[in-house]
């Protein structure tokens, strides 16, 4: 990981997101350095996915979201609502990224498939025929096309089995080591935070904690974030 320059890739200042009268994100500020892995945690409805959508500027927001000039974002949404009978193959889906980033060749698509361990022969399969795990990895492949400098993963390993999950995190670590890619993930799994993240942001509409996981994730913080039932889980992961 290249953090020597400590160059900021993302700076968020006083971010507010409202849906009507509902304040979803309340005065949030944080920043992310190049090559860092930040994980955002918080209960359901705490504004994690909304934060991502504000970061990629697809919802109205107030405050500042400043990306470094050379930033190329690869985004992996939690899910996509695609009709099962939509007449699109995996190849059609991956090629569609060509619309914004011209000149994506089949070679790059195949390289990205290899990174997530998807065989080339499923490129012709209809999207609706992919299994849940294959589709999840197809989304990761889509994000990796175009050599992103930042990856935004919304629950990157939800719905896939343990070996595939490890594979995806191995890929992430390799991208960080080899290309200095910055990673921001949303996760429900606290054990993943301790295993993989450099920094953690606890979000429940506003910032509950932010910093190194071993320093900021204590009992009191998790109680404030989730409620008392997470105490047991906190002990469990530290007893390992």
């Amino acid at each position: 990981m290249d953090k020597s320059s400590n160059k900021k890739v993302l700076e968020v200042k006083n971010l507010f997101v409202r849906f009507g009268d509902d304040l979803i994100i309340d005065n949030l500020s944080f920043d992310v350095a190049k090559g860092e892995h930040l994980t955002i945690i918080g209960p359901n409805g705490s504004g994690k996915t909304t934060l991502f959508r504000a970061l990629i500027d697809t919802i109205p927001h107030q405050g500042e979201v400043i990306w470094a000039l050379d930033t190329i974002i690869g985004y992996i949404p939690q899910k996509l609502d695609i009709e099962r009978n939509v007449p699109l193959s995996l190849y059609d889906f991956l090629q569609s990224k060509n619309s914004g980033l011209k000149g994506i060749g089949d070679g790059e698509i195949k390289d990205c498939l290899k990174l997530v361990n998807l065989p080339e022969d499923i490129l012709g399969k209809p999207l609706g025929a992919l299994s849940g795990g294959q589709f999840q990895r197809a989304l990761v492949t889509f994000a990796l096309i175009g050599s992103p400098t930042v990856l935004l993963f919304d629950e990157p390993t939800a719905g896939i089995d343990q070996p595939s999950e490890e594979q995806i995190y191995d890929t992430l670590h390799r991208l960080q080591d080899e290309r200095g890619v910055t990673i921001i993930t949303i996760s429900h799994d606290l054990s993943l935070v301790h295993r993989h993240a450099h920094k953690v942001l606890c979000l429940n509409r506003r910032k509950i904690c932010y910093g190194l996981p071993e320093e900021v994730l204590d009992k009191q913080t998790l109680s404030r974030l989730y409620g008392t039932e997470h105490h047991k889980f906190f002990h469990h992961i530290h007893d390992k």
Binding site: R53, I56, D57, T58, I73, G74, Y75, P77, L80, I82, L88, D92, F93, Q95, S96, K97, N98, S99, G100, L101, F142, A143, G146, L152
Partner: peptide, 21 residues
Amino acid sequence: RNRHALVLSLISKDLAKTAGV
């Protein structure tokens, strides 16, 4: 010529945005 952009914008506005569409 625009088939990729049309496909991507119908699949997901978020993905389209990050791909520059």
